[in-house]
Design a binder for these strands. Structure first.
Lengths: 207, 207, 207, 207
DNA sequence: GATGAATGAGAGTTCATTCAT
DNA sequence: TATGAATGAACTCTCATTCAT
């Protein structure tokens, strides 16, 4: 029972995309060659142009792929129903875990910022609205109104804080491991890290 | 009175290094061409190899240049004499400000981590011990002993927290500006940011 | 009826190889540039790397090409059925003639020895066993046993003698022509030379 | 007690020449870089041009140096006073030994022939008359007249034979060692070789 | 006599991309 | 859909040589 032509084409395309994503993440856009991608995929070079147009569009497809995964957890978190402390803990834990298992995302994110976000623009990922931000904003406002939280708390900056606290463990793994003599690749260290973050934030927001 | 031969050579070398540093930061290692460097410097291409050996060693020299600047503020901070709260505020403010005015450093740091720290290894920057860490460790220990601080505070993780809280404003400027609709290039936003961080940390560490 | 794609590719590869072989023989490895090869072949430079990998591998392919031709006459000679004198005359005449019409071989052989045989190693030509040597060894042993030959004759050294006697006419054509005032390019001189060799050897081996 | 300026200059020149000679012999003209020479000599590159004009003239000076050594033994041999057999043995042994201890000569000779003798022409070494040839010619003529030698012996071809028989052991050391499984670098093998040659020639010339 | 800086041409090699089938 | 051949521009790097001191 042969595979249909369409299916085979789809498999070819997916294989190219997944390998390209890994290589772009590992080496960055410039250092990744189309040859490296097709050699590893065992697929003819011409297919890159057939399915994706050119190298840059393939890169943009990679960006869309990994960003899509992030969207999933954002959606999930935005449906969270408990109070602020639990929400913060959930955001931190989910996001931290996401970064931990999606090294591709971390690296492409780094690269994009080095690249002044041009790839993301080209990939049409600029319009992503942020459901978590809304959720967080509401929760904070409620907390401030109830006098439970410092009135100078700001949802956007707090979200930046959360992201920064989590991302640094992965974005700067190599340089930090060296300068602090601490193995940031070890799961134990990462566990301590995420707990450290949760406590810092939960304590740090109170009035 | 003409410039001596040695001085002219030194100027040539410095010019190459400063322009290379900027371009490496802007574009990353692979996307920066030796031609681009020498064209901008108006210097013969051969001189890159005369003074630095090859493109990679020139890149390593760039790393050493920007890391040297960081070393200066670290040394300064390590001589700080006040209490922990003041120390933390000083670290945050100094580091935040350093990142703000040293965009080159931020970008090369990002790139190095994308590149698994290989450039830093090659540049002989691995052995940098961290004077701030010692300082912070002592202060935390004292605070815990006096019952003023949470006993589960850890100097290394706290330092990572501080770095993450600051760095994110610059490392992810483009992606965050887009997804939060907040201009992270504006000085006003950055001022709010650093204050938000200081408060979060100062509140967050207490027992 | 158009040429197929594969055939065209094969022609391109063969053209590159034959021109490269000539130029490598004429100028040596270092003095032969890839540009010179592709210009003469009217073929895009990139094809050298497509078909051969790099300049060195192209050189090795050239070595294999000319060595292959030598293998042909060696095989032929190894099937020789007459006595030793006739065998020696045949070896000398065939080898001499081979060198005469394969200037490429002579020059590449010279170059290889200048280069300490590294190219041949890289080309995988080290394992060439020598069918003539076996043949010669047998014939000599028989002659010695029958008391017709000097008992101190050695097949390996004799073969070296034969090769040396022939090769010198081509390997040192220029320097000998000058220092002896004798035109070693002239067919007449070469005819005298090969006869001189045959007689010297046939007389020189007897008991 | 300082060295005089002239002496220092002479030492500089000699050092450049001796190192250049070795490198040209090892690598050939094209593959030897002026940088390699001056680095090894620890002498400023400009001095090559000061003392020798350019790279090519330095190469020619190397040729003159090693050819001069050959001239010495040729002169010596030309004064030989015994009979033909002894003369032939002397030529073979002296020449073989000369090649054995003057690897530079062998290699530069090879290279020159690859290069169609152009370097030798430029070096003004074309006019070297050959005192041995005269000597040999006389001895042969006498032998033929006395009926002791084959009347078809020719001095020039015989000299070529001798040279070929000797040179092959050194010129093709690498390729022969491989194809014959015989270590041509071993002194024992070379001893056997020279004896094999002497016997072959002494037997081979008789009427 | 000696030095380090500087040069421009050109080396080998690799790139993303297109063509022809 | 898929393929191998082909392209030209650009890459990093090296060369022999000269300049200024």
């Amino acid at each position: 029972m042969e595979e249909t032509k369409e299916k085979k084409g789809k498999r070819t395309k997916e294989k190219l995309l997944s390998i390209a994503t890994r290589l772009f993440a590992e080496r960055g856009f410039s250092a990744t060659t189309v040859d490296a991608i097709v050699n590893e995929a065992q697929i003819n070079k011409r297919m890159v142009y057939h399915y994706f147009g050119n190298k840059e569009k393939l890169y943009q497809a990679s960006l869309r792929l990994v960003y899509g995964r992030l969207g999933d957890i954002e959606l999930e978190l935005s449906e969270h129903e408990d109070g602020l402390e639990a929400l913060l803990a959930a955001i931190i834990k989910e996001y931290f875990h996401f970064l931990q298992v999606n090294a591709d995302f971390v690296k492409l994110l780094l690269w994009e910022n080095l690249n002044q976000g041009r790839g993301i623009e080209g990939a049409g990922l600029t319009q992503v609205k942020n459901p978590i931000l809304t959720k967080l904003n509401d929760a904070i406002q409620r907390g401030i109104d109830e006098g439970k939280l410092r009135p100078d708390l700001d949802a956007k900056h707090l979200l930046i804080n959360l992201i920064g606290l989590c991302l640094i463990y992965f974005s700067n793994r190599y340089t930090l491991s060296q300068s602090l003599s601490l193995d940031l690749a070890s799961p134990r260290t990462l566990d301590q890290g995420v707990n450290h973050i949760v406590k810092l934030v939960q304590e740090g927001i109170h009035a």
